[in-house]
Design a protein around this nucleic acid. Structure first.
Lengths: 217, 217
DNA sequence: TGTACATCAGTGAACGCGCGTTCACTGATGTAC
DNA sequence: TGTACATCAGTGAACGCGCGTTCACTGATGTAC
């Protein structure tokens, strides 16, 4: 229903659009501060509304956080799908890694939120469910990339390793003290290239299969 | 001065011991909650004192946090040194990785704090300095391990990659939803083995050197 | 077209809470004579 | 040995603040007749 044909539909569209404005503001704020230290008042100011208004669109802070995070995951996922649709010949993994790193470090927002979601355990069951299915479908995309890169056995393990290691490179050196932002970014990219080279070689030889319980060699 | 010989020295020792009790309590609490959501009152209760007393030993919450974190890093470092003193023949990296993962996941505390330190940017210049030198000497140990494993060129990059990836495996799957603690732990260990296998092979072939700007092949 | 009413997005003020930190005090211990 | 004093670890109460959330209200918009 991309073009609303009734007034009710129009209002619904309008409401969705306003919701998105709040979500984008939330993403910007959550990216700079942590879930706990970012305040509803700050998000409201960023969105240009009163802080009380947010509660017209989201049940509470946690629900806002989860929706914002999932929006980020979805956006990243679309980038992965673009790669899958027109895959390059050889360097799928390098390209994927670069895309991931670029996106996450250029939009600090999603990145910081992602790690927060992974560490905070205080989410409601409902939220956990939503996040879980979001992450699962994201990891599916990564799995597809790994297959494209030639992986055949234990692809789930491989894609988990791939994602986790890149994530670790981002997290571990994000606040590397005493270095400029550009230096940090290029350092992370170098580390990522080192990792991807090893990963690619690893897929080629397949020796990692021995490390997986019940994994075919 | 392991055996105090004057009353003044004795008092100093006593004070240090009390400080350590607070630090251990802080480590336990900071491990379960984040820097922001763990409270001084909670730490005080854990240590069995009044919350006001903490301020007799630490300037403020941040100073307490930094000291607690560094105590954890130091403990881990000693484990690495033990490995370096009596290195096994072949599997240095596997052993190091297992030690790291075991330690960090058995003592959730340090692990959670480590990632927090890496993500929160709000620390004072003084704190950043202390943390920085702590992390640097920790990474030195990892570098020594990498050398022991046969790395010759660009060892700094390698050790960074090694640490970052293991860190990522921990963080990314720590709160894997809907899985028991044991399942998560064994999953992480499998991913770590996959990674280490690739890493070891990578060091052997040395092809990663091509990925480092100015790196010798 | 005009009027009375219903709806509901948006709001500033207020509530209640927990926090980090400080304060004024107590009482045990050590010191000087 | 006894006494007056100084020190200082430890404390409960209090301060001031910012937070998430709720409340009572306003005013614009849509609806019914």
């Amino acid at each position: 229903m991309s073009d609303p044909v009734t007034f009710a539909e129009f209002k619904e569209k309008e409401r969705e659009a306003k919701k998105r404005i709040i979500l984008q503001a939330a993403i910007r704020v959550f990216g700079k501060k942590s879930l706990n230290s970012a305040s509803m008042r700050e998000i409201a100011e960023e969105a240009g509304i009163s802080h009380a208004s947010i509660y017209r669109y989201f049940r509470d802070k946690q629900a806002l956080f989860v929706e914002a995070f999932l929006l980020g995951v979805q956006e990243l996922q679309e980038k992965l799908e673009a790669i899958l649709r027109s895959p390059p010949e050889e360097e799928v993994l390098q390209l994927t890694a670069q895309t991931l790193l670029d996106y996450l470090s250029r939009n600090e927002h999603y990145f910081a939120m992602m790690t927060q979601v992974m560490l905070e355990g205080d989410l409601s069951e409902e939220s956990v469910g939503a996040l879980n299915s979001g992450m699962r479908s994201f990891l599916d995309r990564i799995e597809a990339v790994a297959r494209l890169a030639g992986a055949e056995h234990n692809v789930r393990y491989l894609s988990h390793t791939f994602f986790a290691c890149l994530n670790g490179i981002l997290i571990s050196f994000y606040n590397y003290p005493g270095r400029s932002r550009e230096d940090v970014e290029s350092h992370m990219k170098t580390l990522a290239r080192v990792f991807i080279q090893m990963f690619t070689d690893g897929i080629r030889t397949g020796s990692y299969n021995h490390q997986i319980p019940g994994g075919r060699p």
